[in-house]
Write a protein that binds this DNA or RNA. Sequence first.
DNA 1: GCAATGAACATAGTGTGCTATATAACATAT
DNA 2: ATATGTTATATAGCACACTATGTTCATTGC
Lengths: 152, 152
Amino acid sequence: MTDKDSKLYNIDRTSSAGYMTNWAARLFARAMDRRLKPLGLSTGHLPIFFALGAGGALSQKALTEYAAIEQPTMAATLSRMERDGLIHREPDANDRRSMLISLTPLALEKLPAVREAIETLNEKALGALSEEERDAFLVSLAKIVAALADDD
Amino acid sequence: MTDKDSKLYNIDRTSSAGYMTNWAARLFARAMDRRLKPLGLSTGHLPIFFALGAGGALSQKALTEYAAIEQPTMAATLSRMERDGLIHREPDANDRRSMLISLTPLALEKLPAVREAIETLNEKALGALSEEERDAFLVSLAKIVAALADDD
DNA sequence: GCAATGAACATAGTGTGCTATATAACATAT
DNA sequence: ATATGTTATATAGCACACTATGTTCATTGC
């Protein structure tokens, strides 16, 4: 196979939106985890912090839908967070199947540092993008999420 | 805390590039894995297919750099692929520490279906984006990758 | 030539995601 | 009221990412 054939026949990974999105996401996660580690946190905690940061309580089911992950993934993350003293689980009086989840004071204390980490990392990542490019990037991501959200 | 205070104080996750990139990447991976599963493949194989799809052989080290993952991650992925008959490992005559990796005929056979899966999924994900938006999206991703690539 | 340094790969342990499946409680319909 | 189906959570097993560390071979300096 010649170089020319190869070029025609192969896909360039840098022009595949899926490949590049995965690559950027891995770099984001790596960098974020390094910033969160000194706080005793990690990236998987972030959706729960977003959802419960105002101080309320939600069921595991509600958190699962909010975070847009599968139920067993949420269950495992909550187990680790409970183990580490970050969340509190209490039975729902209205439904004995359900548990209400809330952040502990320990977790709430960390919120400002979490916001700081998110903002500085986004700033670093988007440093080479203009305001217009940043807006367009977020709009495109939202469209992609919407297009892929209905299962498969 | 009032709604207004909450808005001021909290970050909206949909305006965090890192959060949205992670979200889109998870949806891409889920959908791609479902398409690759009938082929006996998964997303972790893709960088190796991109790198070795032309039929050559590379060291684990070279593949690790190409895929931009950590060395133990590549080692584990290659072990699974060898177990599943997708790659061949042979000792490098010039450096006894090093192994040369190549795709097996079984893996090479699957290449057209892999390309097809990548193209159709990208098409589905980008369906709501114009040509200009698609180009801009890839350019922004490349800038973000470059900004985050130098470690932390 | 030998010691020290570095490079390539392997292994151990953990987190976060997935699918498939089990269990217990709620809801409904006869 | 009981059987049937649905919903909320739990568990098992795997893939793929990370960090930390060990082993073996290559290289470099003396």
